[in-house]
Design a protein around this nucleic acid. Sequence first.
DNA 1: AACTAGAGCAACCGCCAGAGG
DNA 2: ACCTCTGGCGGTTGCTCTAGT
Length: 364
Amino acid sequence: MGRPPCCDKLNVKRGLWTAAEDAKLLACVSKHGVGNWTVVPKKAGLNRCGKSCRLRWTNYLRPDLKHDTFTPDEEEHIINLHKAIGSRWSMIAKQLPGRTDNDVKNYWNTKLKKKLKNIGIDPVTHKPISQILTDFGNITCLPHHTGNHFEPSLNNNLNTSTAFIPESDLSSGITELAYTNMVMMNPIMESHDHSSTSALPFGFLSHFQAMKQDDTVPLPPHFSNEVTSSCSSSSSPLATDLLSPQYHASAQVMAPSSSPFNWSEFLLQDPLSSTDQPKEEEVFHGLLSSPANPTVGNGIQSQSFEVGSSLAINGGPSLNINKNLANDHIASSALISFVDTILGQDSEIRTALFPELLDGSFDY
DNA sequence: AACTAGAGCAACCGCCAGAGG
DNA sequence: ACCTCTGGCGGTTGCTCTAGT
């Protein structure tokens, strides 16, 4: 048999912690340190699960935690890091001294997502919603029968995707379903002849739904709920997006200057620059090794992570993430090769998972 | 004053990888 | 080798507070 359980799960106290419990936990941790959380409740005289004690300590009682509101600098860090690595809250939190993953996650969900939506940026892809709409306009109307056929399950599966729909878009006649479909289909559609995608492929959607139900079937990166650009091409603007004047123009339009920093800066760049696409951890270490990143744990030597500082990734060319890429030749070259790589990988994934989509004989 | 809706956030849930018995 | 646990993580829930009516 395995280990004995750490506590009687049915009889431990749950819910909010009292001041007395906090004091006991603090006293215990200061006396014995943080090691084996399974014995902490017994040592501290608490009727709590060890897991609950660990959570309380790491999220609230740790002496190095900040409990004040996030600063604009911290906001910048979170947004930049989210754009780079997605919802890896623990990794993001490690870059913000005194903040926990829970803090960062809550702040993102309650404040930053809304802030981005309000200025027309999709908080998942960090792309301007106007661009998504433009792309949608290039796809001819979704047929009614398709909507009727898929609406319930699609809405069920993709509720979160519609969260960012600006009211103006809804009032202008774009339904949530259409919007959802648009966002869903856009990454795949945009690299194909738009004229051939006038109807949603039933086989494709059912394939998608089947994959959602079967964990053994790998989802293509497009369908990740929270997209991470370090491992997925979909969150990064495609080559045509990055290099087109419309992309830059729309980014400018969608980012008013009322914020303490320029929000449009979060739209245009991707930290990956090398043709040899670095692994996720390498990318993040590339971020950490920026010349200005404060030190945070794991033995990683770093200094303050300045948004706008150059990112030297994996020994490759530096990307200044705050400079306009249109004016940055080096960065543009790096991005082009990066995007080429991504497009190639994208194509492979599509061929593997949706051969019918790439087969000219496929009949919708 | 009472009610309601929304925001904020602490805590829980469930999954995973690695480790212990 | 197998089973079960721990620790860590991201996602979600539900309670509390506050502002608006």
